[in-house]
Each structure stands twice: as structure tokens, then as C-alpha cells.
Design a binder for these strands. Structure first.
Lengths: 142, 142
DNA sequence: GTAATTGCAAATACTTTGCCACGTA
DNA sequence: TACGTGGCAAAGTATTTGCAATTAC
């Protein structure tokens, strides 16, 4: 049974001209289920995808999805890039432990939208979005 | 003539037990002069450092400086890591063009401190800091 | 049938380390 | 003198691409 968020995301993929492949479905379900940004290696190695397809396929899929605004590539701090599902109307900031590397979404509302509007108005940048991350040592690591 | 910010930074390095080498000075001056985050490759290839020392040296220097809180390693979005000078009492957010990759510091005051305090209080994370980046297509690229 | 997608393997890019020589304190 | 630093070269990790085979539409 495919969750409705994923079903809607698949619709967006189809609308963008992408083909509905098994790999696409499993990738979207995996990202959705994890609820947090994941690396290429994590995704390609996850149960749903490990036997399903090659890492290069996951890489190219992520690339395509990112170019259509369906996933977003995040910087974070590791050497590897992280990818997260973009759901219209939702935004997340992250709290990352500098010790163990754990990543969790910040629950509080994001305080940056006002400034983002100002930047949009003052600089003429288009397609503006932001990334906000908090780094620190979590209680377990401290 | 070494700028006073750099001189103070060198003092902090000495206090942290680092030796005052030519490479250290040139690295700090370069970072200070550029006024924006730079990659290892940019630093190692810059006029002040190119003939001065090996890329591995710059790498280890940055590593040491980061571990003492004198520079900070930033995620941003490129494959390469970026490094920026940390000056006590100063904080920068960045505006990055997704087309040409240009990076500039945002002038407006950072709207995140309040939320950072809440997170500090509510989660028990230690040594908290944040990174805020805006991404968009600059007027030239659009 | 046709163009998008995939697998496998090879090529890149950037980072990180080993080891011994060197320079600062 | 002693230990932090530096150079050079090699290894490591993550990403990216070429090309022929496959699959969705």
C-alpha cells in the first residue's frame, strides 16, 4: 500500500515526464518512510533498493528528481550529499549532532521567511529558497 | 602590513598552541581578504599560498584551525567544502547563486538567534551554532 | 517502435593519510 | 633538542559518466 504523499509525488513525477519505474516508487517510498534526509549510499543500500537497482541508477534518479524540484539536495556537513523529499507547503530545518551525525527535523516554525522575502525583493534573485541547520553536540554525545 | 583582525586571529592561534608559520599567516590573510568562504582548492591555488606550500599542508592547517574554532567548515552545495574565518562576535548568512555558484554574505541581521536559544534550552544540545543559506538564481544568470 | 531508463565498469573529483625531512619554540 | 609542521606521493571515499541492453509508454 503506497502512502498518499508518495502517490501524489509519483503523480508529480509523471506530470514532469518521468517514467513510473519500480526504482522510482521504491526510492520515493524509502525517502518518505525515513522522514529525514538520506545520502546516496544510504538510499542505494536500503532494503527496498539494495536488490532493486544499481547505485548509479539511484544517483541518476535523484539527479532527475532534483532537477524537477521533487527532491532537494542538501549540503549539511558530511562529505556525502543528502537528499530529502520536497512536499509542497512543507519546510524543514534540521538539528544535527556534530558528534554522532544524527539528523532531526526542527519542530518550531521557521523564522526566516520574512528575511527571504526581503532578499527576494532587494536582490532580484529568482527561485529563492533557504536551508537552515543547527549544529551542536547532542545530550548523548556530550 | 597585517590587518588587525588577522593579527588577533594569529594571537588566538598561538594561544591554542599552534606555531606561527608563514603558511598560517598567508592562509589567514587570504581568508580575511577574500571576505567569503573559500574551498581548499581555491586557497591552495591562491597567489599568497600557491608557491608557499602544498595543498596537503593547507588541508591540515584548515583542519587544525577548524578544531580550534578559528575557521569553520561550511556545507554549502558544492562538492568541495568551504572554509570561512570565524571572528568573535560576527556571524554571516550567505546568498548563493544556483547558476554561477557565486557566494555573498547577507547584510541583514540574522533572524535565527531566538530560535537557537529555544533549541539550546529545549534539547540540551551543547556548543550550538547554525548555518543559514539562501539559494536562488542571481539576476545575471536569470 | 522509440525514447527514457538501467547496469556495469571505468573515470573524476575531492579529501585524507604515511612517512620522513624540516623549522619553530 | 623536541615536537609541531611541511612536502610528496599514494590511498580512500563519494560522485559522475560511457555505452550497450532493457523497459515504459
Amino acid at each position: 500500500m503506497i502512502p498518499s504523499v508518495v502517490r501524489q509525488t509519483i503523480d508529480r513525477c509523471r506530470a514532469a515526464g518521468l517514467r513510473r519505474t519500480k526504482a522510482l516508487e521504491e526510492l520515493l517510498v524509502t525517502l518518505h518512510e525515513s522522514g529525514r534526509p538520506m545520502t546516496l549510499a544510504e538510499l542505494a543500500g536500503s532494503p527496498r533498493l539494495a536488490d532493486q537497482c544499481d547505485k548509479a541508477t539511484v544517483f541518476r534518479l535523484l539527479q532527475r528528481l532534483a532537477s524537477h524540484g521533487i527532491v532537494r539536495r542538501l549540503g549539511l556537513h558530511e562529505r556525502a550529499a543528502y537528499f530529502t523529499l520536497l512536499v509542497p507547503g512543507k519546510h524543514s530545518d534540521y538539528l544535527i549532532c556534530t558528534g554522532c551525525g544524527s539528523i532531526e527535523a526542527v519542530q518550531a516554525p521557521c523564522p526566516v521567511h520574512q528575511l527571504e522575502e526581503e532578499i527576494r525583493a532587494n536582490t532580484g534573485y529568482r527561485n529563492l529558497y533557504h536551508e537552515l541547520e543547527f549544529f551542536g553536540l547532542c545530550p548523548q554525545c556530550a
